[in-house]
Amino acid sequence: MFRRTAFAALAAVAALALAGCGDDTPASSSPSKSSPAVSGAVNVFAAASLTGTFTQLGKDFEAAHPGVRVTFNFAGSSALAKQINSGAPADVFASAAPKNMDDVTDKGTPTNFVKNTLEIAVPKGNPGKITGIKDFADKNKKIAICAAQVPCGAAAAKVFAALGITAQPDSLEQDVKAALTKVSLGEVDAALVYKTDVLSAKDKVEGIEFPESSKAVNEYPIATLTKAPNPDGAKAFVDYVLSDKGKAVLSAAGFDAP
């Protein structure tokens, strides 16, 4: 038994070593009519900021369609786009930014299903005495914002540009959850995150809204993928997210309607 496993592992390594070239064409799914009978597994690739809501939606969807199993791959939108373009077996892609959706080549027409607004997150009790977005230009405050390369950082840059202030961050975080972690541990006085993130950590952080957040609203598009192994399941899941039930779950988590 052990030898067989070891052999399989070796074979896998050999395959990896020998591959390199060769275009693996995925088995093209049969062109299907939109039949309501949904079954099998649905692989949903969704932005990390959708983790809470989509896990909930997946459970509800499974309850509404017995025999269907939804599996999620939550990660940064740009990483997911790369995985999908490299041939990952995804049925649905929900991105935190239109740009990452545009990066995906084989997809149906994307629909914007929610939008997310930036909010200032401060540790419980606001120890740094942050009053508004202007404090982000104060050198004496410990500040974290997202790096300009990731969507929340790009949105933050838009806000600062609109205000004409130069932010004085102590750290440029690699994603919005990392920025939130720094706030909930009290390592920074404030960070710029999404409204939904503040709500998701409401026992550890407080949110401060600011009017200029309207300058940088993030649209979330969702689309089925052309090479989906389960096209019917993909369509049904997207329909469910866009349904009234789906909208209720999303707005309860702090997402705004598009």
């Binding site: 790096a147 390369q149 961050p169 750290s171 440029l172 690699q174 720094k182």
Partner: peptide
């Protein structure tokens, strides 16, 4: 954290460039 010149080492720069 990640701040150029202070804490941005090569692996961090690689990750963000990606």
């Amino acid at each position: 954290g990640n701040f150029p010149g202070r804490t941005t080492t090569m692996p961090l720069a690689v990750y963000l460039a990606l």
